[in-house]
Design a protein around this nucleic acid. Structure first.
Length: 569
RNA sequence: GCGCCCGUAGCUCAGUCGGAUAGAGCAUCAGCCUUCUAAGCUGAGGGUCGCUGGUUCGAUUCCAGCCGGGCGCACCA
């Protein structure tokens, strides 16, 4: 609908220019908002006001010119008004709104999808937690956001893939091995010194316990060093398996897993750095190799290879992003925890060092989650290994509620997550509010079929009876859904969808309480379906079509976020 | 000290490519189920959009400076 009106406005502007009434060559972007007050029409444009300065005309006069040149004015609009100082308020014909319902029925699951990104490949890297322990709540938010971003991009035509970068090389892995080794020794009655920066979490002991039998078999044949190495690889597999399981229970499907260690094995790090050397973007100083990040806006140059010959984490990351580019992705997205924001400039520098624009990489920041229980903060400490795991949250509140909560707020702002609140099956919990709207409509189908009323198709139903403000309000909301999806996807901001769904659900609940869709079971004298209206079969049919469209959009919206749409609650 | 993010109702937060009287949920108060799911609805109260300047016909939105909160500034990952 917005598209149709925008086209008409553009036609008016071009028409006026041909007649010499307007001179501006490049029109500003025509944005149409739904005005706050119903008497201001369905859609409003501020274009006349923004043209005022370049045209040297009063906004009101420009608006007048636009109105005079508006093509198909009679067919499209019931009312066209100019309001001081130059608002153009348009009231679209009800018949056109009703048309939206036919479109939704026709497009079904595809309603809201678009082809904007067709032919462009995107790689979204998210979670990427070290496989040295279970995922915690913060990872859960990153997972929900990353997954939703992938689905949103796919919805508007991009070929987007989610990838998990496994940090399975370097110091953290060594520490993991040493920690498990120490716990294993303890379990076998020997005492060894626990590594200084080792992992203290109780899950390490649990892993050691689980591996004990396996390790006992080989313990006698291996040197302590080899045994520790064995601990490392077994613990790594175990923990990565747990992470995969956790993500699966959370309903997150990650298409691709990329191992950091594979970069070392394949000498990809060397090759990636050689390429930088060839471009004279590496230099040696004090026995270390440095990347000239400062040439591309980072605050200083960064070490990629230490004095002792070891690569830094940045070296792996350079090679990893180099690899992503080589794999031919048009856009790279990294979902980072906000505590890594200092890393962004150097990654942008990497992009440019390889000759790409820096916005070829977009970083989505996800702020930390403040976990509460009954309003009291639950403290987490990485050092002692005491933290709330993602698994605990899923078990306690369910995957749907957890996802919705994580996606409710702009990911770059802090999020309070109250476990008790998220668990409550009440108005306090927005996910149920939205799902309930969906289930209520499904219930209509059940009752209708029990009473022998079949579901009408939009094409074969007279929708002209849908003129009530509540009905038109719902339709207008439905018609803006595709725009919401596009804007949300292009901004990488899934929270816009959760917000939209809550608004749509609110309109549905209001409608549902105020108006009837199906006739009452028993014939009644009073056959009112709402204030001053009579429920005729015609009205029932039209409203069923409307309900079907609302259900479709609720389902599509939940689907794109990876949240279920239950038929019964 | 430098850099990034945030500051909107008592609380948690939407909104902001500059627009008309700033929104939702929670909490508080008052109502609504013999008829399609009350996990719902209706109404009421509640705001110097952190502060001060600037740009503009118009600023919560853009710019600058301050104040407050979070995070980051390794030859760690």
């Amino acid at each position: 609908m917005q598209e149709r009106v925008t086209t008409a406005l553009l036609g008016a502007l071009n028409g006026a220019r041909e007649k010499g009434q307007l001179k501006t060559t490049a029109w500003p972007t025509l944005s149409l908002d739904a005005p706050k007050r119903p008497e201001w029409g369905d859609l409003a444009s501020t274009v006349a006001m923004s043209l005022a300065s370049s045209e040297h005309k009063a906004p009101h006069d420009i608006a007048q010119i636009i109105v005079e040149n508006l093509p198909q004015r009679e067919q499209l609009f019931d009312r066209v008004e100019i309001v001081h100082p130059g608002f153009l308020n348009l009231t679209v014909k009800a018949a056109l709104w009703q048309e939206v319902l036919r479109q939704i029925e026709l497009q079904g699951d595809r309603y809201g999808r678009a082809a904007i990104g067709t032919g462009r490949r995107v790689l979204v890297e998210y979670v990427s937690a070290n496989p040295t322990g279970p995922l915690h709540v913060g990872h859960g938010r990153g997972a929900a956001v990353g997954y939703a971003v992938v689905r949103l991009l796919n919805a508007i035509g991009y070929d987007a893939v989610g990838e998990y970068y496994i940090n399975d090389a370097g110091r953290q892995m060594k520490l993991l091995g040493a920690s498990v080794y120490a716990r294993y020794q303890e379990l076998s009655g020997r005492t060894v010194e626990f590594p200084e920066d080792g992992y203290h979490g109780s899950y390490i002991t649990a892993v050691a316990q689980q591996l004990k039998e396996q390790l006992d078999l080989v313990a006698a044949e291996l040197t302590p060093v080899d045994l520790e190495t064995r601990c490392r690889s077994l613990a790594y597999q175990k923990l990565l398996g747990l992470i995969r399981d956790d993500l699966q229970s959370f309903g997150i499907e990650i298409q691709s897993w990329f191992s950091e260690a594979s970069l070392l094995e394949s000498r990809a790090i060397e090759r990636a750095l050689d390429e930088l050397k060839a471009r004279e973007l590496l230099f040696q100083q004090e026995g270390a190799w440095w990347f000239r990040a400062s040439m591309y806006g980072d605050e200083k140059d960064r070490v990629v290879r230490k004095q002792d010959g070891e690569y830094t984490y940045l070296a792996s990351d350079i090679a990893y992003h180099h690899d992503k580019l080589r794999r031919g992705y048009d856009l790279l997205i990294d979902v980072f925890g906000a505590d890594h924001h200092g890393y962004i400039p150097r990654m942008h520098a990497v992009m440019q060092a390889y000759g790409h624009p820096k916005d070829r990489l977009h970083v989505v920041l996800v702020q930390l989650v403040k976990l509460l229980r009954d309003g009291v903060e639950v403290k987490m400490s990485k050092r002692t290994g005491e933290f709330i795991t993602m698994r605990e949250v899923i078990d306690e509140v369910g995957a749907d509620a957890a996802k919705f909560y994580f996606l409710m707020r702009d990911s770059k702002t802090h999020l309070e997550f109250d476990l008790e609140l998220a668990k409550q099956r009440s108005a306090d919990n927005p996910v149920y509010y939205v799902q309930y709207a969906h289930a209520r409509i499904c219930s209509l189908w059940r009752v209708a079929s029990a009473r022998g009323i079949s579901r009408p198709s939009a094409g074969g139903t007279d929708l002209s009876v849908l003129t009530d403000p509540d009905e038109l309000g719902l339709i207008k909301k439905l018609s803006s859904y595709p725009e919401v999806i596009q804007a949300s996807a292009l901004a990488f901001e899934p929270h816009r969808v959760t917000y939209y769904l809550q608004q749509l659900a609110a309109l549905l609940h209001t409608f549902y309480n105020k108006h009837r869709v199906l006739p009452p079971e028993i014939e009644q004298e009073n056959n009112e379906s709402g204030p001053g209206e009579v429920l005729t079969p015609k009205r029932t049919a039209a409203r069923l079509v409307l309900m079907g469209a609302v259900q479709q959009v609720l389902r599509n919206g939940l689907e794109v976020l990876g949240i279920s749409a239950p038929e019964q609650m």
